[in-house]
Design a protein around this nucleic acid. Sequence first.
DNA 1: AGGATGCTTCGGTTACGATCGAAGTATGAA
DNA 2: TTCATACTTCGATCGTAACCGAAGCATCCT
Lengths: 228, 228
Amino acid sequence: MKEGPDIAQIGALIGDPARANMLAALTGGRALTATELAAAGGITLQTASTHLSKLETGGLLAQRKQGRHRYFTLADEAVARLIESMMGLAASRGHLRHQPGPKDPALRKARICYDHLAGDFGVRMLDSLVALGSIDAIGDGLAVTAKGESDLQCIGIDVSSLKSSRRPLCRSCLDWSERRAHLAGSLGKALLANFMEKGWARRMPESRSVVFSPEGERQFLRLFPLEA
Amino acid sequence: MKEGPDIAQIGALIGDPARANMLAALTGGRALTATELAAAGGITLQTASTHLSKLETGGLLAQRKQGRHRYFTLADEAVARLIESMMGLAASRGHLRHQPGPKDPALRKARICYDHLAGDFGVRMLDSLVALGSIDAIGDGLAVTAKGESDLQCIGIDVSSLKSSRRPLCRSCLDWSERRAHLAGSLGKALLANFMEKGWARRMPESRSVVFSPEGERQFLRLFPLEA
DNA sequence: AGGATGCTTCGGTTACGATCGAAGTATGAA
DNA sequence: TTCATACTTCGATCGTAACCGAAGCATCCT
């Protein structure tokens, strides 16, 4: 009966609340130090250290030393996707750590998901790109159309250069707050980076939420209308 | 820092070896009794009973009573996908329960993945359908073409009736042995069912492997050539 | 009715791992 | 060099949950 890979090891790694909180914090995409992750997990530095080494030997985390700091990130996008999909499942089963509170709205509106935009704004952007004919949606799959390629060029994104990377250009990622898909992949990353370069949006420290400037929000809503 | 859904609960449920083995056994798609699952988990019936009730209240399993038996299945396809994607991640990180042994080949060649065909044959079938122009592949997404709809009709599969179901017609599912995609969704299920009806293939008891009859294998290879 | 099978609940044991205090190592700053 | 910061390792405690034996229900068969 012992066939195939052992999912229990990975499950157990994610199954500890402290570790789960650290992983969730890393879904924010930035590299975090052991001390920051200890705070995220609500534990002391010593305990966090042992957790982090377990996560790393388990292949879920990558680290790089920089001076006397040690920065941790999720090992790769596959891990990020797993975490997000578990969040989706957990949300649909009602496993919530807290009731939806007054602090939530900012997070539901726009937040970081590993390296791209999620939340209401993320979902709206993808819907709009599909409605505008910039992206073809077939089943779960997404592909940039010829029209989309030129549209994106106008915004300042060179799709052809993104294509050369090994990472998939488009990916749909299920949103746990909206329960609908938003845009991931290298294009999703490039779009968010583009917004931040232009000063339309910026990340809040210590949180996954992304806030748009009044002007940035106007431009965003103009660029991605709800009904094409 | 406590934002979003709690992945630790789900992780912990999957993180116990006995429970993980039971879940993996259910990836085979058939409904299993508590006694069978106890054997799959390598534990006594009493212990299995408590595990199963935890898995059920956690939303990962569904059960239905039938006489004095209690049949368990994975709660829905989302759970099946999560388990499979964890297997993929575990395989890529080298978390194996055993070295690839002589008993493996049958499993790698053709096996059940929830309700559709996986393994070498599953991957080949999807590749072939794409090469033949029966299925369009865009990114991760799959869609049946007009040509595909008539091709499948010839085999004895009515695509239009499948479309009416709420479940997605095509889905790509990552194979942990091949590390490539095979066909899931209602079409994937229908195709496997079709092969079994025709007597081309049958499931082995107590295992996830699917064996083709000599004639069935000939027909399968003819129907799904490698290079179109 | 009596007996067998499938499963659950209870009680008590046991083992594993999460936790932190304290001490040890590495890197940078003064 | 000396001190401070960032982190790891050691050692010991403690809680939780996995586990099984035994007993209790429920369902089916004869």
